[in-house]
Nucleic acid binder design. Structure first.
Length: 810
RNA sequence: GCCCGAGUGGCGGAACGGCAGACGCAGUGGACUCAAAAUCCACCGGGGGCAACCCCGUGCGAGUUCGAAUCUCGCCUCGGGCACCA
């Protein structure tokens, strides 16, 4: 009888829902397990690559549930964002309608996989019930000075007609559409994430159960540099130039200084100088270029200002240049240039014929250009003879004594730009009043809801700006006429706190009840793609810390354990709609069923690694499941009066060993080997059945029962049906995960390998508790190794009981 | 350029410093069948041998060790992250 997966799947998907098996509440008597998958953008159809992730999370939900945990597995939708809006531009369909249709579709596909969630906590960021609290959160940050608006040079995507956060610019292009990003000076809203830079960096150390590479990526992104900021007098001007350097120890080697083209002092330095026109042309050219164009030049270019800076340590006057290799956004936008110890300065000095002075002695035989390594200070007056660290310390102390400089720390991290000039996001709840400035929308007026518009096309400002009844309001403070802010928030604002909202998803009085959050947080297991290593994961950590500081969340870090799964690859590329290499699951559902798909997704390779799609793989796991089904549903034919046979203890032992392996493998996210262990067990049981002439003994029934329990989180439909049919109970999902019996797991006899000079020459079955003397005796008595011993001298015998003896001959 | 990973059969991959290739896919041969599908059985890294067996083999080259896919060093290749960040 073939396995009728279609009706079995439908039956159990209904049962899990009707019986509310995975709906949970706070229960202080049981350990909790908060299991969250990064909530998806509702893009509609799931392909095999997506199903891999959903299978992992669902397996964890079911596994931990069976282990007695109070498991919360919620699901929601990251449902604001550009795809719905771009679809609206093309079709005129309201983004809400489009989005909600996609959600319905995606939900049915999750159900079809057999993925279970506490759907009563479902949330979607595009709903006023949700984004009301986005806006509330914004106002909290605003009150604390953590949300602010400023004129800044920002990244602008000309295609999407909106600004982008630094984190959303990849290789100088828009992360979403790939268009080269431009720089524009615009008034924009920022979150002051830089206030948290040090804590975000320090607390990475607490995240022991995060992948190392994600922590490294975040640390690099935050980019702490310890250095020194000092000021230099501009000769002949009443001006001082502030520079930042990480190598203050090399200050005696400064032969010029450089300002970024956007530096505010530039104007005054060049005014009236012989070089004024040349400098203005250069600055204008630099402004026209994007950052990647600037970099693509390769050669470092610049222009002399005509002014000189006075090196505070030796009074030497050095020329001040303007060059676009110095960035306004980092440090002070001005540097001291030490070509002897910095390759970029070296390149520039060579091009413009500037002096090069070495201040750190390179090792003998050094033939490179700028020397960046360790060494002893030279040509540096009172620093001479010191190593780099000591020289840094001494020169910083010197600057501090003089009052012209100080040791400082710089971060690469910039404030998070959260304004977007688009429609489909949370409106920023601010009113701009000519008299009172930026006035928060009173909390009781939240949410600020999108008005419907007829034209979604981006025009450099949000389509909301075209709706007078939305824009024109009374100032809540003075009652005078005012305008609403029309920018919406970056969707990463939504995703930086949604996992808190799941804890109390329907609270209409507050963002959440801190007591409920205290029960569920932190997220015990967070699962998602590594592409979020610096975006979402950094923002979520930041917002959690802000809420922690407000006393609303007791934890300081949101995600105790992070798992970043590998991607599914086909034809040499990540499976994705845009690449056109997706494999749709439908034919596989129809031919092999959800459990076979799930099992293949688990089996395909290590969960952390990218895996290559194989068209025949699902059929393979289907064959395995079908074999299990046939084994479990054949005539039971229990031999009750049968004496225990030799193989009985062996198959029980196999089942218990598999149980230990499967348990440990799941705990370590080694799902592929867990599946392999179950396949091996099924093979063992099949061999046993054959040896018994097909009769199902009680021993078989027990071993089989264990196998069904182990398989339950992986292939839930089939195992639930077998469990019920075999009379074990009506709901496998709530059964306890079995415990292996150490007596059965223990091996009585093992294969001992006998090597001669490290090469295997014989294998002998021995008792597992054999002692070293006996092992050596047995080994040396082996007929197989006798020929090797002839005429040779035994130099040494290495014995590792009970598995190995190595006879070393001279 | 800097910082991480990873290189094992035809393929995906297994392997506490101790039997390389578990498990599966593909393939080959066989059983069942009028035939096919499904299922079941056997084989399945390369070379030699009738065989028992032997030799070679985990990207390349050294090293440590009784013993290395695994540890160390140096290369090569691929993937990822960062990148005029002073």
């Amino acid at each position: 009888m073939a396995y009728d997966f279609a009706s079995i799947e439908a039956k159990w998907q209904d049962r899990w829902e009707e019986d509310r098996v995975f709906n949970v509440t706070e229960d202080p008597t049981r350990p909790k397990f908060y299991n969250v998958q990064m909530y998806p953008y509702p893009s509609g159809d799931l392909h095999m690559g997506h199903l891999r992730n959903y299978t992992y999370v669902d397996l964890l939900t079911r596994f931990h549930r069976m282990r007695g945990k109070n498991v919360l597995a919620p699901m929601g939708w990251d449902s604001f964002g550009l795809p719905a809006e771009n679809a609206a531009i093309q079709t005129g369909v309201h983004p809400r309608e489009f989005t909600e249709r996609q959600i319905v579709r995606m939900k049915s596909q999750l159900r079809r996989l057999g993925a279970v969630y506490d759907w009563e906590r479902e949330l979607a960021s595009h709903t006023p019930e949700f984004y009301r609290w986005d806006q509330w959160l914004f106002l909290q940050l605003f009150e604390q000075g953590l949300a602010y608006k400023k004129l800044a040079s920002v990244n602008w995507c000309p295609k999407d007609q909106t600004v982008l956060a630094n984190e959303q610019v990849v290789d100088g292009a828009c992360e979403r559409c790939g268009t080269t990003v431009e720089k524009r000076d615009l008034e924009q809203w920022f979150f002051r994430i830089t206030d948290y830079a040090q804590r975000l960096l320090d607390d990475l150390a607490l995240l022991e159960d995060w992948p190392e590479r994600v922590r490294v990526m975040q640390a690099n992104w935050i980019g702490r540099s310890d250095g020194c900021q000092f000021r230099m007098h501009v000769a002949g001007h009443d001006l001082w130039l502030e520079v930042f350097t990480t190598r203050p120890d090399t200050v005696f080697g400064m032969t010029f200084a450089v300002l970024a083209p956007e530096h505010p002092l530039v104007d005054r330095l060049i005014a009236g100088s012989d070089h004024e026109q040349e400098a203005r042309d250069y600055i204008a050219a630099a402004r026209r270029q994007s950052e990647i164009e600037r970099m693509a030049e390769g050669e470092k270019t610049g222009v002399f200002t005509g002014a000189y800076a006075v090196n505070p340590v030796n009074g030497r006057e050095v020329p001040i240049f303007i060059a676009d290799y110095v960035l306004m956004g980092y440090g002070t936008g001005a540097i001291m240039a030490v070509p002897g110890q910095d390759q970029r300065d070296w390149d520039f000095a060579r091009r413009y014929g500037l002096d090069i002075i070495r201040t750190v002695s390179p090792p003998p035989g050094w033939e490179g250009e700028a020397y960046l390594g360790e060494g002893i200070a030279i040509n540096s007056d009172f620093l001479d003879g010191l190593d780099v660290a000591a020289a840094k310390k001494k020169i910083i102390a010197w600057f501090e004594e003089q009052g012209t400089g100080t040791g400082t720390v710089q971060y690469r991290l910039r404030d998070w730009l959260i304004s977007r000039q688009r429609y489909w996001g949370s409106p920023i709840p601010i009113i701009i009043c000519p008299t009172d400035g930026l006035v928060p929308v009173p909390v009781e007026q939240l949410p600020v809801v999108h008005p419907d518009v007829t034209d979604y096309a981006p025009r450099g400002e949000s389509p909301l700006a075209a709706v007078p009844e939305f824009v024109n309001v009374e100032c809540p403070s003075c009652g005078g006429p005012a305008r609403r802010e029309t920018d919406t928030m970056d969707t990463f604002v939504d995703s930086s706190w949604y996992f808190l909202r799941y804890c109390d998803a329907h609270n209409s009085e507050a963002i959440f009840d801190p007591a409920k959050v205290a029960y569920w947080m932190p997220v015990d297991q967070y699962v998602g793609g590594v592409e979020h290593a610096v975006l979402h994961l950094l923002y979520a950590r930041f917002i959690t810390k802000v809420l922690h500081d407000m006393g609303m969340v007791d934890v300081d870090e949101p995600f105790a354990r992070l798992f970043t799964q590998g991607m599914l690859v086909k034809d040499g590329a990540k499976m994705s709609k845009s690449r056109g290499n997706v494999v749709a699951p439908d034919p596989y559902y129809e031919r092999f069923g959800a459990d076979a798909i799930r099992l293949f997704e688990l089996f395909i390779g290590p969960a952390t690694d990218d895996a290559v799609w194989n068209d025949n793989g699902v059929e393979g796991t289907y064959r395995f499941l079908d074999r299990v089904w046939r084994m479990g549903t054949g005539e039971i034919g229990l031999i009750v009066d049968r004496a225990e046979a030799a193989g009985d203890r062996a198959i029980l032992a196999s089942a218990h060993r598999a149980l230990r392996k499967v348990t440990e493998d799941i705990e370590r996210f080694r799902f592929n080997t867990a599946v392999a262990a179950l396949m091996a067990l099924a093979n063992t049981l099949a061999d046993y059945l054959r040896s018994q002439g097909g009769a199902r003994t009680e021993t078989f029934a027990e071993a089989f029962r264990l196998m069904v329990l182990m398989l339950a989180p992986m292939a839930p439909h089939l195992t639930h049906e077998l469990w019920e049919r075999r009379g074990h109970g009506s709901m496998l999902a709530t059964e306890s995960w079995p415990q292996w019996d150490p007596d059965l797991v223990r091996q009585d006899s093992v294969t001992m390998v006998i090597q001669v000079n490290g090469r295997v020459r014989d294998r002998i079955e021995v008792a597992a508790d054999i002692d070293e003397v006996e092992a050596e005796m047995i080994a040396l008595a082996s007929a197989r190794i006798a020929p090797y011993l002839e005429g040779a001298t035994i130099r040494r015998v290495v014995v590792r009981v009970p598995t190995l003896v190595n006879v070393v001959l001279s």
